[in-house]
Design a protein around this nucleic acid. Structure first.
Lengths: 137, 137
DNA sequence: TTCAATTATAACTAAATTAGTTATATTATA
DNA sequence: TATAATATAACTAATTTAGTTATAATTGAA
C-alpha cells in the first residue's frame, strides 16, 4: 500500500508549489496548514531534500523552498522516494519470476495491473495538484 | 498490498480448475503441488467455500471441488474475498473524502490509479490462468 | 464398529511494517 | 548570545502479515 507518509510527502510538495517560486515556508507552517504532525514534516523533508527537490536554510527567517519545477515531479517518483519501490504484490519485488511456470502467468497479471496503476501516478504531477488546489480555494 | 494469502487463493482455485469438472482433490495434494503450507490451504479453502466457489466432502476419498464456472471467477473477487476491500491508499478506505479540498484532488488521482489496476484484475479469470498453465506444462 | 483420512473451525504467535514520537545536534539571524 | 529554524537518528506502540497449533466433525473401509 502507498503509505500515509508518501501521501504526506505529496501534500508537502503541493504546499511548497503553491507558493511563489524561490520563496520559503517553515516546516511548522506546512504542518499547520496541512494538519500533518510537525515531526513527520521534518522527517519527510529530509527525503525530499535527498531527492533533490527541496532545499532548506537554517536559523531564524530560514525555511524550505522548492528547487525543482513541480511540473517535473510526478507522484510515482515521490512515492518511491518515501516508500521505496512500489509493488502491489510481494512477488513483484523479487527480480526473478518464481520457480513455477504457473506462478509466472500470475506474475504477468500482477505486473500489468501494477503498470496501469503506475501510468496514472506517473502522469500526475505536483504542478497539476497545486493548480487544482488553487482553483478550489 | 495484495497479500500472499490472496495470491495463494488464486493459485488454489487455478489448481482446482485444472482438474476435470466435478472431480475432487485433497487439500494436501493442492498444498504439495503448489508448495503452499497445508494449513494455509485449509484456512483459505474456508474462505473460498464461504464465497460459494468450492465445496468439500469429508472422510477418506473426500476432497475439494470447484462448483463455479472458473470463467466467472475474476481475480479482484478472489482478492477481496481473502483480503477484504482493496485500497492502494488508506484514504480510499474511508467513504467520505477528507475535510480538505486539496486532499480531494489527490483522492481523485488515487482513485483513478486504483481503478486502472482493478480493471486488469477484473478482466483476469481463473479459467484463463488455468488455460495458460496447461499450455506451459 | 472402530480406525484413519479427510474437511472444518478457531485461537495463537513471531516478524515486519506503519505512523508517529523523542532527543539531540547544527546553523544563522537579530 | 539567545533563539528560531533545519537536520539527523533512534525509539515505540499499534497493526498487519504469514504461518502455526490445536481440536472438532465427518465418513469410508477394514
Amino acid at each position: 500500500m502507498i503509505t500515509k507518509k508518501a501521501e504526506y510527502a505529496v501534500i508537502i510538495l503541493t504546499e511548497l508549489a503553491a507558493h511563489p517560486l524561490g520563496t520559503t515556508i517553515t516546516s511548522k507552517d506546512i504542518a499547520a496548514r496541512r494538519s500533518i504532525p510537525v515531526n513527520l514534516v521534518v522527517q519527510l523533508l529530509a527525503v525530499l531534500k535527498e531527492a533533490g527537490w527541496t532545499e532548506g536554510t537554517r536559523g531564524p527567517t530560514g525555511g524550505i523552498r522548492l528547487i525543482t519545477d513541480p511540473h517535473k515531479i510526478n507522484l510515482r517518483a515521490v512515492i518511491e522516494a518515501v516508500d521505496g519501490p512500489i509493488g502491489i504484490t510481494r512477488c513483484l519485488f523479487s527480480s526473478k519470476p518464481c520457480r513455477d511456470q504457473q506462478l509466472c502467468s500470475l506474475r504477468g497479471i500482477w505486473s500489468r495491473a501494477q503498470q496501469e496503476m503506475l501510468k496514472v501516478l506517473e502522469e500526475a504531477t505536483i504542478k497539476e495538484l497545486a493548480a487544482a488546489a488553487a482553483l478550489e480555494c
